[in-house]
Design a protein around this nucleic acid. Structure first.
Lengths: 197, 197
DNA sequence: AACGTAGTACTACAATCGGAGTGGTGTCAA
DNA sequence: TTGACACCACTCCGATTGTAGTACTACGTT
């Protein structure tokens, strides 16, 4: 078992790309080798088996999605009104095209988690922490909308993303933007005069 | 190419089960044969190739999900108030456990559609028609809530279902019910005194 | 400066496995 | 008798895995 951490990370990044492109079942050692452009057999030397690879990839995805938290920090800079929420939601949805492989890989992993308890055990706390962080962040930032509103926005935006990722022709770009705006319109109060600090 | 339609349908049903259990990539002729409990090689005789099988399975899923439309017809029987909407949403979410394989197979197909234009072409109009039917149905039934509200409910409920199907431990049953109720609470007006008729 | 060692990159190989497709035979019904 | 189909068995093929063996690099020692 090789110990080169940089190479291991590169292999995991390659694995995430493979996941998005080929699906969970297409994630083979060889495919990872090819994607990472390393000699065949390398992935075999770094991961004990497929389960090991899947699980580590599941953990790795979040390491790469967390930098969005830095972007999220920027969200504090603007005003704290409903329009700002709309803008943030637009940015979230737009981010799909940038991180497309990440989102798709995560979906693949979710489905694979159906069959792999070990993977499920890794993903469940991560997702829950992500949700909690989102809600906490929103509330503490002073943006309008309570925890319930944030949760419902989270649900709606997530499916919107799935729809866009998997069957982009179901909604036009206009419908997409419209749905985002109406979601905020309906779920977030016009301004937060009561709880703002 | 065999013509026995009953057997073909049985093979497609088996294919849907395989999809849910093994994922899109695990859908092989042999696996379908095994699931359908027919001799090996049978599926080969009924479908030209994997693409053919996938596409037909994608179409077949909707044949089996449509009977829900019959169930949906029953939804007209109750009162036309917000509480009724809540009840219908609960029923929708509860239906997951009954049709689990169907929902999972559909998710797998969505991801596979990412890679197969032919499958995408089959799924896109189906999904769109399904959404439109839902909205139309809701509006014509006289239940409270406009098209936007129905759409947003649709988005939120769909992701709730994904969450429950793939990582059931993220939300407890109570949280799940709570989210359904709050979604209706926030998105559907308390009663529809204006547009009913 | 020469040497030894450890860890790793790389190559190549051998074995395995799963799956696809097809030809042949028996059966049933028209 | 003929045609379609169920069933069975067999062969060919490609992909994948795991590993053995070799070369390289860095580092520490003398």
């Amino acid at each position: 078992m090789r110990q080169n951490q940089a190479r291991r990370a590169a292999l995991l990044d390659a694995a995430i790309d493979v996941l998005a492109r080929e699906g969970a079942r297409g994630l083979t050692f060889r495919a990872v080798d090819a994607q990472a452009e390393v000699p065949g057999g390398t992935a075999s030397n770094y991961f004990a088996n497929r389960d090991d690879l899947l699980t580590q990839a599941g953990a790795r995805i979040y390491e790469r999605l967390e930098p969005d938290a830095a972007t999220l920090a920027r969200s504090l800079e603007g005003p704290r009104d409903r329009e700002r929420v709309t803008q943030l939601m637009h940015e979230l949805v737009d981010r799909i095209s940038t991180y497309r492989t990440g989102y798709l890989a995560l979906l693949e992993l979710r489905l694979e988690a159906t069959r792999r308890p070990g993977l499920r055990a890794v993903l469940t706390p991560r997702i829950r922490a992500d949700i909690d962080a989102n809600v906490d962040y929103h509330l503490r930032s002073g943006l309008p909308g309570d925890a319930t509103a944030v949760m419902l926005l989270y649900l709606a935006m997530n499916w919107l993303i799935v729809e866009q990722l998997t069957l982009p022709e179901v909604f036009t770009q206009e419908q997409l933007r419209d749905l985002v705006e109406r979601a905020v319109e309906r779920l977030i109060p016009e301004s937060d005069r009561s709880g703002a600090g």
